[in-house]
Nucleic acid binder design. Structure first.
Length: 484
RNA sequence: GGCGAAGUGGCCGAGUGGUUAGGCAGAGGUCUGCAAAACCUUGUACAGCGGUUCGAAUCCGCUCUUCGCCUCCA
């Protein structure tokens, strides 16, 4: 089966084949580390995590690069304002390095909780200043960049395709919309900074042929992606809001130098809204992940994100997440039931579900449909388990293997089952299993003797400590409470 | 103003020119000592107005509304 990916460049689904057979190079814009990660980060990196997992599942060797922006990202427009990291350092009365290190660690903590796999390479912009300077030198040599007063700008007019990704190709028409006063340094208002001369008191600065200064924000992605992945990437991902100007600038910088297509497939994930309105720093409505994890299990957040398509906006509300949480529990419960089933004789065909799941994932990573397939499977499994014949051991193994591959390996949502069953090979798990066996035996004895007061007390008191008992025709089962 | 996306049943959220998305919530039933879970049944949705078509919620046009980008943002 072939994979189709929606390519933002061309705005259509295209069949995906990597440039080099068997190997996929993918670069995703990483965070600017000046604050804790929010739900928008979660949506982006969970989405691309599944992209990478699916590509690996399909047998590709995936080289995944995701940068850490720790310099050059200014608070105002691309060429004005204060460096975000520096500003935060000033606010926290420390230095930029501590800020970027602190929030980088914070970012990975949150991503780990969301079960987002780490990229193969996570290059920091400040660790690649020589590469960025080299790229600027090549741009100047080829006539695509010019220096004025220690600043270096990319000349938009030197690159005819500028704006092709976002559709903003008519630079003259754009000028009416530019609110910032035109800087006298620039030859053209749309030109953007590659290197900025450090002003008095600027904390982060490096030597360069033009001035003591720092690189422009757009530059790092070009320099680092091409360093680690070559001059043409298979996939470049990022948030929709970065399409312009960030990604268009990347294309211009890179292609102007190499003369080759920079990226074959551009993927843009949509935004998170809160009550229908964009989550933004200025609006003060952004949802901090650390706060959110106090209310919801991170895996529930992951599941919630994957229940909508990566190209659709995701509207945040606690009601919606609670609904997701209940749904996820249902899937986990099915997996648990399946694994506990014994002595069944019925056959169960998992192949049709596997096929539908693969088709959904191959269709531009359609995780909502893939999850719907898992729900259909859940219903079919439960129906079979409720039937007289149950499910035979061989079918259970096949089905469970699919659930594990699809639910845990690929989507990363059915990872709690072993843990919640207390059977995770750890000593504590074994101990709990043993204790629970005793309690369930005692309760079964009480029920046999119609001592329902005692059996109900056992059930209620276990529930109070977060363990839920369910009586089935094959005896009682138990599970830790999920989700919230 | 320019570029782009979208309006789906109580809520979330896919998809499609004619056939059930899925989840949550709700209703009825089966099972159960009770409960929970599970299963069965149940919802006749696609902003509005025109047009194309044998047939459109799905294509086209217009209108209304919302959202994103054009300033930093995943």
């Amino acid at each position: 089966m072939s994979l189709f990916i929606y390519n933002s460049l061309g705005r259509a689904k295209e069949q995906f084949e990597p440039l080099h057979p068997g190997i996929v190079s993918i670069y995703v814009c990483g965070p600017t580390v000046y604050g804790h990660a929010h739900l928008g980060h979660a949506k982006s990196y969970v989405s691309f995590d599944v992209v990478v997992r699916w590509l690996r599942h399909k047998g590709y060797h995936v080289k995944y690069v995701q940068n850490i922006t720790d310099v050059g990202h200014l608070t105002d427009d691309a060429d004005e304002g204060e460096d975000k990291i520096s500003k935060q350092a000033r606010l926290e009365k420390t230095d930029p390095m501590e800020i970027s290190q602190f929030y980088t660690r914070s970012f990975y903590e949150d991503m780990d909780k969301l079960d987002v796999l780490r990229p193969n390479i996570a290059p920091a912009a400040t660790a690649h200043i020589p590469e960025q300077i080299a790229l600027i030198e090549r741009l100047i040599t080829t006539g695509h960049a010019y220096e004025v007063n220690g600043n270096v700008y990319f000349s938009v007019e030197s690159f005819p395709g500028y704006g092709k990704l976002s559709g903003r190709t008519d630079q003259e028409a754009l000028q009416s919309g530019i609110r910032v006063g035109v800087r006298s340094d620039k030859r053209h208002p749309s030109d953007f900074a590659l290197w900025k001369k450090a002003e008095e008191g600027h904390l982060m600065q490096w030597n360069s042929p033009w001035s003591i200064g720092y690189p422009g924000w757009h530059l790092e992605c070009s320099a680092m992606s091409m360093k680690y992945l070559g001059e043409t990437l298979d996939i470049h991902g990022g948030g929709l809001e970065n399409k312009f100007p960030h990604h268009d600038c990347e294309i211009a910088q890179s292609e102007a130098v190499t003369g080759k297509p920079y990226v074959r497939f551009w993927m843009h994930n949509n935004m998170v809204t809160v009550n229908g309105i964009k989550m933004g720093k200025s609006l003060k409505n952004f949802v901090n992940l650390k706060d959110l994890f106090n209310i919801f299990d991170p895996i529930v957040i992951r599941f919630f994100i994957l229940q909508s398509h990566y190209r659709s906006p995701l509207d945040f509300s606690e009601v919606a997440i609670k609904a997701s949480s209940t749904g996820l529990e249902k899937l986990l419960e099915t997996q648990r039931r399946l694994r506990e089933q014994k002595n069944g004789t019925g056959l169960f065909e998992v192949e049709p579900f596997l096929k539908r799941f693969n088709e959904a994932m191959d269709d531009d990573f359609n995780t909502p449909v893939a999850i719907a397939v898992l729900f259909d499977l859940s219903k079919a499994i439960n129906s079979a388990l409720d039937g007289n014949e149950g499910i035979a051991e061989e079918s259970i193994q096949k089905t469970d293997a699919f659930l594990h591959t699809a639910g845990a390996d690929i989507l990363g949502i059915l990872t709690h089952t072993e843990q919640s069953m207390g059977r995770n090979n750890r000593e504590s798990g074994k101990t709990i299993d043993g204790i629970m066996d005793i309690l369930l035996e005692l309760r079964a004895e009480a029920r046999k003797n119609k001592n329902f007061a005692l059996s109900d007390t056992i059930r209620e008191r276990l529930l109070a400590v977060g363990i839920e008992i369910k009586d089935t025709k094959d005896g009682a089962s138990w599970s830790k409470e999920q989700g919230t």
